[in-house]
Structures are given as C-alpha cells and as structure tokens.
Amino acid sequence: MIGLLSYLVFFATVATILAIAVLGLNLQWGNTGLFNGGVAAFFGAGAYGTLILGGTPQAGHLGGFAMPYPLALLGGMAVAAALAWGVGRLTLKLRHDYLAIATFGVAVAFENVMRNAEWLSGGAKGLRGFERPLQEGIGSGLAYNALYLAFVASLLLLTYLFLERLVSSPFGRLLRAIREDEEAARSLGKNPAKVRLTAFVTGSVIMGMAGGLYATFYAFVSPQDVLPILTFQIWAMLIVGGAGNNRGAILGAFLMWGAWTASGWALSRHAPVEAQIYAGSIQYVLIGSVIVGMLLWRPQGLFPERLVVSQSGGATRPAPAK
C-alpha cells in the first residue's frame, strides 16, 4: 500500500512538473502561435542552471555555488530566459519556420554541449552533488516526496493563475491579435516582434522552472534528461489537451505521462526479453502517432478551448461539446 502510494506521489510529481512545462509551451504555441521545437533546451537550461547554482562544490567542473534554493531556481530560470532571448531575437522577425529550425537546433546543440563539456556540466555522467532543500529536516522518505509534490503542485497552480490572468489581460489580447492578424496589430502601433519575444521568453522561463523542479526532484540531471524526445512528449501533451487551453494542457500532461509510463511498464513486463531494447522505439512510434493522429483527426485537442473565437467572417462558432 505504501509502495503504491509512493509510486503515485512519484508519478504525480513528475506529471505536475511536466504540466508546468506544457503551460509554458501553451503560452508560446497556443496563445501566440510560436513554434518551439526545442522545449528540451529551455527545460534543460533551467535544470542545469539550478543544479550548478545550488549544488555543493564539485571537483572537475563548474558549479557548486551552494546558493540558497530559491535563488538557484530563479537562476536556472534566468539561464532559460537568456537562451530564449538570444534565439528569439534572431528568429522571431523571420519566416515562422525559422524559429522551429533554430529552436530545434538549440536543443540538439544544448544536449550535445552538456554531453561534451565536462568542465561545465559533468558531461555524459551528469551533474550530482545537490542537496534537496529542507532534506535534512524532513528526511528522504515518502513525507519528503509528498511535501515536494505539494510544492510543485502549488507552483503549477500559481503558473496556471498567472497565465490565465496574463491571457485575459490587454497583453493576452494583444497576443491573440498578433496571432490572428499581424498587420492589423502592427497598424495599431504595436510591435509584433517585441510582443512575440516577450511571450517566447516568458514561456521559456516557465519551462526552465519546470526543468529546475525536475532536477531538484532527482537531485541529478544528465544529457539523457534533455533529449529531443522530451520536446515531443511536451508537444504531444499540449496537442492532446488542446492548444490554447491551460486546463486542457494540464489534463493532457497527466494523460500523456500516464500513457507513457503505462506503455513503458507494459512493454517491460510483457515484451520478450530480446525485444526489450526496442521498447523505446515502440514508445517513440506511439508519441509520433499521437501527434500525427491528433493533428489529422482532432486538431483542437481532447479538451478544446471553450472561448468563442471570432472568425474572419464575423460568424461565431459554438463551443464544441466535450
């Protein structure tokens, strides 16, 4: 019973952290129409940033600044912000798909550098030597994990509330205006490139926070945690939940993470031993199929946006039933 409970806590913690990243992506894609093909890089920037800033001193590589935890997490988010700012400034003025290519490239390069730059990131064996906050007082058992779950859940809630407020604010309306008709927004004296950059950086900071929380949870991060598949998982979660809809995004994260872990578990249990090395391939095909299938047959997601979207002809579309 305790075993099941601790597994549930573990599962919910990871799903909650990923849900935060999905919310960040939703701001970029769902609300602003920006294609971020490198979620893993911004997630990873937050993860590595947090561990390097908050970790204990290590021989052989940078880091171990042992900063207080909140500062370390904020620092990780700042690293993600800097990365997003650099990429966004170069590409957001250009054709839409340059951003997709550049961000995908950032993720490839980020993983590659983390794997090779031992002085910075510990290389392929990853980054250890991080004291989880308040660990000494609470211990490392179920109680700590449950508390940590409560912590990440409250951050998820805060992020959700922040984004809901942002989206209904004048800035949120501006995002939608730019997404629907950039020329019109420009003629109103708004600078679409600047607004997009703000949304892109904000979304990436949220992903960075998710990455920081993820690395805190495991007190470890390695290049394996920032592979491109993470980007695709986050994307699948968003499209399943319905782009543009924050509640849907959270539901999508839990649903897809459930499906991912369940399929992994089923494969490890039922697939013959010699086929075990192909379990990953099967899961990747599943993720790819979810993405393609949703786009073909249910592009609005399972939990579509409930807002009435104005159409170009002025006609309104009734809210789709669940």
């Binding site: 798909d97 997709a100 994307w235 192909y278 391939s281 095909v285 790819g288 993405i291 393609v292 786009l295």
Partner: peptide, 22 residues
C-alpha cells in the same frame, strides 16, 4: 495550417525513424 505541418513532420519523423529501427 502551415505550422501544423511543421509539427506533424516531427511526428512523421519519429514514426518513420523508429519503424525503421523496429
């Protein structure tokens, strides 16, 4: 939906690459 095609192409890439692997 131009950007949805970019997105779909990631999915197609995952499927093709891993089916070949399988």
């Amino acid at each position: 939906e131009e950007l949805s095609m970019v997105f779909a192409s990631f999915g197609v890439a995952l499927i093709v690459r891993n089916v070949i692997g399988l």
